[in-house]
Design a protein around this nucleic acid. Structure first.
Lengths: 336, 336
DNA sequence: TTGAAAGCGGTACCAA
DNA sequence: TTGGTACCGCTTTCAA
C-alpha cells in the first residue's frame, strides 16, 4: 500500500497535523522534528495524494487544453509548448480534441470541471460564446489561445492574423504578383477571416482588387486545400500566387499545382501560415508566416498560472506578431 | 458555489446516502424518490466531484500517456487515437512528452501516481526496465505501445517491425533494386532495430548482402535523416534505394536526394515506415509501411480499461501487421 | 512547537 | 426503501 500521512505521523511519533505542516513548510516546527519527518518520508517513499489535497480546496495542478485536433501539426506543436511550460511550473495537461464541435467542447468542459482542473486553455473554435462566459462566471480561469473573443473579458494570446495577411500580400505584391488568390478556412473561423481581411486590404492599398472567385474557403485539411486550389488553377484565368491560410491548405495547393503541371515557385507562388513542420518538409519548402508557437505556449501557461495565484487581476490580451519566413515556394513574377 | 451531494439531499429531503445510491444506481430506491432526485440534480446542475469519488478508492477516469514527443506526427496521431477511444469509454488522458529521457519518464510517472491515474500507457523508449516493473509491482495497470519488453509480464501492443522490414526489402528487391541502404534510429531503439533486422534478413534470403557502410543510424528527426542520406548519396558508390525507418527520416532522405540532384523515384527509391501525414504530404508521396495507428490506439485503451475492470487477468501481447502502402517514392530499377 | 478535530464530497456498510 | 456514519488523505483553525 502507498504510504499516507498517517503512516509518516505514526512512524515519527507525531500527529498528522505536524507532518502536514512540514510538508507545506507552514507553522513553526522544530528543526529536529522537521528533519526526522523528512527522513521518514524519504524512507517510506511518501508521495502526498494530489487527490486528497485537492479535496481540501487546494489545486489539482492540472490544466485542460481544448484544441481542434491534436494530430494537426500546428496544434500538436502548440500542445508541446504548453506541456513543457506546464511541466516547468508543476502542471499536467489533459488533452481534449474537439474537432471544433461545440457539442464536444461542452462535454469536455463539463468533464474538466468534474475533475477540478485549475484552468482551461481554449485554442479551439467555439461558436457559442456562452460556453466561455459560463466558465468565467464560475470563476474558472480561462485563457484563449489563437482564438479571439474581444467582447469577453478573458485573457487572450493571439497572433496578429490581420498583420500576417498584410505581410503575405506585401510579399507577393513585392515580387510582382498581381493575380492573387486566397484559400482560407470557412468564414466562421475568425483567425482565417482576419488573415484574409489583412491580405485583401493590402491588395487594395496597392490598387489591386481581389478578383471574384479568387477567394475560396473550406475546411482545414490538405485534401480541402488541394480541391480548392485545383478549382483555382483549372480555370482559364488562373492566379499567379496563392495565399493559403495554413500549412495544410498550402500543402494541398502544392499538390494541386503538381497535379496540373505547374511548377512552384516559377509558375505559381504560394505563401502559407503557421510555420509548422509541414512548411519545412514540403517541396519546395513553404514561404510562410511563422507563429511563435513556443512563445505562445509559454505565455498562455504563465497567464493562467498567474491568474490562479490571484496575482494579475486585470485581463489582458497579448498580440504576437507573425514573422514572414521566406523559403522556396515564392518567387518573383516572371514577366511574360 | 457548485452543488454538492449535500445540497441535493437537503433539497430532496433525503439523506446523502440515498442520493449517492440513485447516483450509482445501487441499492433499492423507490421510483418516486429516484425521479425526484434526478430532477433536483438536473435543476441544480449537479456534477459529482471526480476528486471526492476518487478519494473513496474509486477511479479517477484518467489515463497517463507517455510518448517521446507529442509534436512528432506519429505520436500525435497515436495520441489522437488514444484520446478518442478514451473519451468513448469515459477516460481523459494526460499527455507526457518524455524526449526519451529516463529522467523525465520517472518524473512524469511519479506525478501520474500522485494524481492517481487509473493506468499508464507507455509508448516511449525506456532504458531502465525497473521503471516498468516497479509500476507493475504497485499494481498500476500499464500497457506498452509500440515498445516491447518481452521479458516483462505486461500487456503490449506492437506492430510487427520485423515483418515490416521484410516487406520493405521484398518490395524494393521485387522492383529490381540490389544496392539497398538503410537509415534507422540508434540501436537502442528496439523497433528500429527489428525493422532493420527484417530488412537485412530478407536481403540475405535473396542472396544480397547489406553493404558495409550502407547502414546508417541516427536520431529520428528530418535533419538527421537528411544528413545520413547525404552521406550515402555522396559516396561514389551510392545505393539505388533507401529504407528509412520512419517518415521523418524518409523526408530527410527525400531532401537529400533533391540536394544532390537525384530524382525520386527514378534515380532513387525510398521506402518509409509509419504512414503518418508526412508520407502523404511528401513529394513524391512516400511508399511506406503503414502502422494501423487508429487500431493501435483503440486496442491499447481497451486493454488498459479491461485490466482496470479486473476482467482479463492474463497478460497479452498483440502484434499488428504493418501494411505496405505503395505510393510514388519507389519505382522499378532502371537497367543501365 | 505540537495536536485534536472539523471539514472537503463522496461511498458503502449496517441498521432501522 | 431509507438513513446514520465511519472512512478516504489531507488542510486548517484553535487549543494546549
Amino acid at each position: 500500500m502507498k504510504a499516507t500521512i498517517y503512516d509518516i505521523a505514526k512512524e515519527a511519533g507525531v500527529s498528522i497535523a505536524t507532518v502536514s505542516k512540514v510538508l507545506n513548510g507552514k507553522g513553526k516546527i522544530s528543526a529536529e522534528t522537521s528533519k526526522a519527518i523528512y527522513a521518514i518520508m524519504e524512507r517510506l517513499n511518501y508521495q502526498p495524494s494530489v487527490i486528497a489535497t485537492a479535496l481540501t480546496g487546494k489545486k489539482t495542478y492540472t490544466l485542460g487544453l481544448l484544441i481542434p485536433d491534436i494530430s494537426n501539426p500546428f496544434f500538436s506543436e502548440v500542445a508541446r509548448a504548453i506541456e513543457d511550460q506546464g511541466e516547468h511550473l508543476g502542471y499536467s495537461v489533459i488533452m481534449c480534441s474537439t474537432d471544433n464541435k461545440d457539442e464536444k467542447v461542452e462535454r469536455y468542459i463539463s468533464l474538466l470541471q468534474q475533475k477540478q482542473v485549475d484552468g482551461i486553455i481554449i485554442a479551439t473554435g467555439i461558436d457559442n460564446k456562452d460556453i466561455v462566459e459560463q466558465l468565467l462566471a464560475k470563476g474558472i480561469p480561462v485563457v484563449l489561445l489563437a482564438r479571439d473573443m474581444p467582447l469577453i473579458a478573458v485573457n487572450t494570446v493571439v497572433v496578429d492574423d490581420y498583420v500576417g495577411g498584410c505581410l503575405a500580400a506585401s510579399h507577393l505584391i513585392g515580387l510582382g504578383h498581381r493575380k492573387l488568390a486566397v484559400i482560407g478556412e470557412k468564414d466562421s473561423v475568425r483567425s482565417s477571416r482576419e488573415r484574409i481581411r489583412g491580405f485583401r486590404q493590402t491588395m487594395e492599398d496597392h490598387g489591386i482588387a481581389l478578383q471574384e472567385g479568387f477567394l475560396k474557403t473550406c475546411d482545414y485539411k490538405v485534401a480541402d486545400g488541394k480541391k480548392k486550389a485545383l478549382e483555382l488553377l483549372q480555370s482559364e484565368d488562373s492566379p499567379s500566387a496563392i495565399f493559403a491560410c495554413n500549412d495544410m491548405l498550402a500543402v494541398g495547393a502544392l499538390q494541386a499545382a503538381r497535379a496540373v503541371g505547374k511548377k512552384v515557385p516559377n509558375d505559381l507562388s504560394i505563401v502559407s501560415f503557421d510555420n509548422t513542420l509541414l512548411s519545412e518538409v514540403a517541396d519546395p519548402p513553404l514561404t510562410t508566416l511563422a507563429q511563435p508557437i513556443e512563445h505562445m505556449g509559454k505565455l498562455v501557461v504563465n497567464m493562467i498560472v498567474e491568474e490562479l495565484h490571484g496575482s494579475n487581476k486585470v485581463k489582458q490580451r497579448t498580440v504576437l506578431r507573425p514573422e514572414l519566413i521566406i523559403r522556396g515556394s515564392t518567387a518573383a513574377m516572371i514577366r511574360s
